[in-house]
Every structure is written in structure tokens, then in C-alpha cells.
């Protein structure tokens, strides 16, 4: 069984698009996969999203407390990357663009996503209204 957490916009869910910012997303959508099929979907609000600092760590806490063992991310900062690694949560890189949770899960099941092991943006790139800058 794998449980994948994806940072999402709005209320989250299978048809919602991914939020490019990990620590400052609106919601996390958790998708459980059993025998290559989706068996459970739920979303959780991200209370850390508007805090000044340490959001990557707090967001990882939400992901960990809901027992996800994988995440799919677009932009990922160093604190989030270190925290996810400390919890042995696998990090998959989204190919970018406006993809929905469902599309991302299909890419994951088709083994089309790349595993990454470190941050792809500098600290605090997710702050403010702009999007992060990918290296």
C-alpha cells in the first residue's frame, strides 16, 4: 500500500490542480493506492501556509501525521526536503504545468515521475504571491 500526499489548491481532491508550493499550499490531498488502484482520497487544510518561517517543516508534519510515504511536489524548499528525508518519505518531481491530482497519480502509477532527493528552490522562494523559481 502506498499513500501519496500532493500539495493542492482550494479544497483539494482528485480533480483539483496541484499547488506548486509545498509548504504554502492550501491543502494536502492524500491518495491511497492498493493493488494499483485508488482506494481512498481525502484532503487536509495546511495551517502552516501563512506562517513566517519553518513552513516546510510544519507542512511535512501534516504529511507525516497522515502517514503518507510518498509526496509529489513541484517546487520544494530545503527545510521541507530535509524534513521529508528525515521521515524517509519518497519525493517525486511533478513535470510542471497545471496538472490535477488524478493526472499526477496516473503518472506516478505509470512510473513516469522522477525521484528527487533534495530541494529544487532556495529557502523562502514560496513566500509572497509569486511562484518559486526552479533551478
Amino acid at each position: 500500500m502506498i499513500k501519496i500526499a500532493i500539495p493542492t489548491c482550494g479544497n483539494g481532491g482528485l480533480n483539483e490542480v496541484m499547488n506548486k508550493r509545498f509548504g504554502r499550499c492550501d491543502t494536502f490531498t492524500f491518495v491511497t493506492i492498493e493493488n494499483n488502484q485508488i482506494s481512498e482520497v481525502f484532503s487536509v487544510g495546511n495551517h502552516a501556509k501563512s506562517e513566517a518561517g519553518g513552513v516546510g517543516i510544519q507542512a511535512t508534519q501534516i504529511v507525516g501525521n497522515h502517514k503518507a510515504n510518498e509526496v509529489i511536489v513541484d517546487f520544494l524548499g530545503p527545510n521541507a526536503a530535509n524534513s521529508l528525508k528525515a521521515l524517509n518519505i519518497k519525493i517525486y518531481q511533478s513535470p510542471g504545468g497545471e496538472l490535477t491530482v488524478k493526472e499526477l497519480i496516473n503518472l506516478r502509477l505509470g512510473e513516469k515521475l522522477e525521484l528527487i532527493s533534495s530541494a529544487n528552490v532556495e529557502a523562502h522562494q514560496g513566500m509572497g504571491r509569486g511562484q518559486g523559481y526552479r533551478r
Partner: peptide, 24 residues
């Protein structure tokens, strides 16, 4: 400890030992 850490430098998952994130 994690709840009260202003820098959020302790990663605490329920029923687990907190993990210090020394960089913050």
C-alpha cells in the same frame, strides 16, 4: 517541544520521537 518551538526546528510526528532540524 515541537509545539512551542518558534523556529519550528523540531519535526514531530504523532507517537514518534521529535527530529531536530538543526539548520533552522
Amino acid at each position: 517541544c515541537a509545539e512551542n518551538c518558534a523556529s519550528h526546528a523540531l519535526l514531530h510526528i504523532n507517537d514518534c520521537i521529535p527530529i531536530p532540524i538543526s539548520t533552522v
